[in-house]
Simulated scan of single mutants.
Amino acid sequence: MASRILLLAFLALVSSHAIASDPSPLQDFCVADKTSHVFVNGLVCKNPNDVRADDFFFSGLDRPGDTANKLGSNVTLVNVEKIAGLNTLGISLARIDFAPYGLNPPHIHPRATEILTVLEGSLYVGFVTSNTDNRLFAKVINKGDVFVFPQGLIHFQFNYGTKNAVAIAALSSQNPGVITVANAVFGSKPPISRDVLAKAFQVDKKTIDWLQAQFWMDNNN
Rank of each mutant, 00 (worst) to 15 (best):
V128G: 02
Y101I: 00
I168V: 15
L71M: 11
L61V: 13
A99D: 10
G144S: 11
V51L: 08
P105T: 02
F137S: 10
K46S: 08
T129F: 02
D133Q: 12
T67L: 03
A169N: 02
I168R: 02
K46H: 01
G65F: 00
D145C: 06
V118A: 07
G126C: 05
D133R: 13
F158R: 06
G85P: 13
F137Y: 15
N79R: 07
V148Q: 13
V166N: 04
P106T: 07
R135W: 12
A112W: 04
S73I: 05
A167T: 10
E120V: 09
G161S: 15
N87S: 15
K139V: 07
K143W: 01
G121N: 04
P106W: 06
L93D: 00
V51T: 15
V80E: 14
P105N: 07
R52W: 01
L61M: 15
N142H: 15
D54I: 10
D145G: 10
K143E: 15
N69H: 01
N134G: 02
A170F: 10
A53M: 13
R111S: 11
S92T: 10
D66R: 01
E81K: 14
T162E: 15
G90A: 12
A94M: 06
H109M: 07
A167C: 11
L77C: 03
I168E: 07
E120G: 04
D66C: 03
V125C: 10
F127N: 02
L153N: 07
E81Y: 11
L136C: 10
A112Q: 08
P105R: 07
D97Q: 07
L77S: 11
I141V: 14
V140M: 05
G126Y: 02
V80I: 14
N131Q: 12
L89D: 09
V80P: 03
S130W: 05
I115L: 14
D145Y: 09
D50S: 13
V148D: 03
V75T: 13
T117H: 05
G90H: 12
F56D: 09
R95C: 02
I108K: 06
V75E: 07
A167H: 03
A165C: 03
F57E: 05
G121P: 07
N79M: 00
K82C: 01
T113A: 14
R95D: 04
P48G: 02
I168G: 01
V75Y: 08
R95V: 13
L119A: 11
I96S: 05
A53H: 11
R63S: 12
N134E: 10
V146F: 05
P106Y: 10
F56G: 06
N142E: 13
P64E: 09
I108E: 06
F147T: 11
L119G: 09
L171K: 14
T113N: 09
P105A: 04
L171S: 02
N164V: 05
L123W: 03
I115Y: 04
L116V: 14
